[in-house]
Design a binder for these strands. Structure first.
Length: 321
RNA sequence: GUUGGCUCUGGUCCAG
């Protein structure tokens, strides 16, 4: 059973919800861990109905499962259900309180977030990191800095969070200063620094910095794609998209959006269509969003193929506006 | 003496 669960969790982390489902259905016995893994897998899909179904059909509930459910409500924007569940819980621990703190922050309720944080007797590192990130999201730079400075210990997440505060605030100098000061760095740290250059309109510096990065993940590439598109450097966007494939980093919905926007701005119908089709055929992205359909329809229509544009509109999986 | 839950980074259309 533990090994089954481990495989189940691996499928979930790799993003294979279908396999999670298949394995789950075929498992002869299941324990609490099994259910929690499945619930978490579904909640990452943002498919709340499915998650609630699992939760309600559970024979037993424990703290882990409740926390996973809190997180599911939080991710899907159901703050009131989240809060209700939290208040109904008899025992809570740090992980669970932290999930609730994050839920408030994620859904724009900084007051409640801060209040729960302050109310929690002995804070810990993760909780403080969540609060840091909450201040960042709300643009409370000074509160973030005060908290960061007062923390008895800091880990990589703390540093990345405070780095992001200055990056989001558009303070390139301070971001760079902190970045150089960091005791250790991860790809996330590099990605934040890259975003700071990009936000500061320092396209050339960003490009240079990108070259020096120890490794690139999907976020690094997406940041570059978006930057090139925003600055009207369409050929760079396409070049980037090609390099990304060469590095075997699979583009996702976010990175495709930047590329399609680039095609749109450049009025490159041929490339836009190729990319749009490749998204489904080669990358298995079956659910283009309105924004992506919008790019392609715009391109097609501007090129004068009004009938094609019309049939595209009719083929969309949602109602046209 | 590790089978499961929480914290950090990317596109933001539409609307206004």
């Amino acid at each position: 059973l533990p090994s089954c669960n481990a495989v189940l969790e691996a499928y979930s982390q790799l993003g294979y919800p279908d396999r999670v489902r298949l394995l789950f259905d075929s498992m002869p016995e299941r324990d609490m861990a099994t259910w929690t893994i499945v619930l978490t897998a579904y909640s990452q899909l943002r498919h709340l109905a499915l998650v609630e179904d699992v939760f309600n059909n559970m024979p037993f509930h424990d703290l882990f499962l409740w926390t996973a459910m809190l997180s599911a409500y939080s991710l899907s924007g159901n703050l009131s259900k989240c809060e209700k569940l939290f208040l109904s819980m008899k025992n809570v621990d740090f992980v669970c309180v932290n999930a609730m703190v994050t839920a408030y922050a994620r859904n724009g309720h900084l007051e409640e977030c801060k209040s729960l944080f302050d109310k929690t007797p002995s804070s810990n590192l993760v909780l403080q990191n969540s609060m840091l990130s909450a201040f960042c999201k709300a643009g409370y730079i000074n509160d973030a800095k005060t908290l960061f400075d007062s923390m008895p210990e800091r880990d990589l997440v703390s540093w990345n969070s405070i780095l992001d505060v200055y990056c989001e605030n558009g303070d390139l100098q301070e971001t760079k200063f902190l970045f150089d000061l960091m005791p250790e760095k991860s790809t996330v740290s590099f990605n934040i620094m890259l975003a700071a250059y990009s936000q500061g309109q320092q396209v050339d510096l960003a490009r240079k910095f990108f070259e020096t990065m120890p490794e690139w993940d999907l976020v690094s590439w997406s940041t570059m794609l978006a930057m090139n598109t925003h600055n009207g450097r369409f050929s760079e966007t396409i070049k980037c998209f090609g390099s990304m494939a060469l590095e075997a980093v699979d583009a996702d919905l976010v990175s495709f959006t930047s590329v399609l926007l680039g095609c749109n701005h450049a009025g490159d119908l041929k490339t836009g269509l190729l990319i749009f089709l490749s998204m489904g055929f080669d990358y298995g992205i079956e659910n283009p969003t309105k924004q992506q359909y919008g790019c392609v329809i715009d391109l097609v229509a501007r090129a004068g193929y009004l009938e094609v544009a019309e049939s595209l509109i009719l083929s969309m999986p949602f109602v046209a506006e």
